[in-house]
Amino acid sequence: MNRNLEYKKRFYDMENEESWLNEMSEKGLALKEIKWRVFKDIYRFEPCDKRYVYREDYNMEGALEELTSPYIKFVTETYGCEFVCLANGKVYFRKAAENGDFPPVYTDLNSRIEAEKKFFWKTVSCSFCAFPIMCICGLNIYNTFDSDTVFGRMGFVFSIIALFCAVIDVVWFIPAALQKRKKIKELEKILDEKGGE
């Protein structure tokens, strides 16, 4: 893999990520896959002559693959676009610019806010799930640090997991939840200014 075709990035805003992917496409790079990492995700690209327009949405169905997801099927059929990948709780689509318009997935503020709220609560729930596991396992550090028994050693391994959970919680879920909360407030403000839709 050519290192130049890998970029480390972290996006909390769908529109910013879409814009960046579209800019990369302008430079002749087509998205191949996204690998999740604790601090920054790895975006892998491949050289491509075609110019694509990228769109993304939250993976609310929790789809694990393209073929079993009614939503992915609906979007690809409706827009005549291609599925690219699933990553970070999101699903990515693209359509060759020459094949016509590819409008944003959410064109109505109410449904956009609803989607952002669902993702926010999913993120917060993940964060709260990680927190008690982290605390319970973390307590084992003290008890098992110098243990010679099998259970003691297992407890120590759990404490390592606890540290890992803590890092993920702080680095990923909490900033993601805060960013989503900010975005929801911004969208609600726009909706209020418009007097509802």
Binding site: T78, P103, Y106, T107, S111
Partner: peptide, 11 residues
């Protein structure tokens, strides 16, 4: 009025 696929699918 232009509906996006996410909006339409939800509706």
């Amino acid at each position: 009025v232009k509906l996006g696929a996410g909006t339409l699918y939800g509706a």
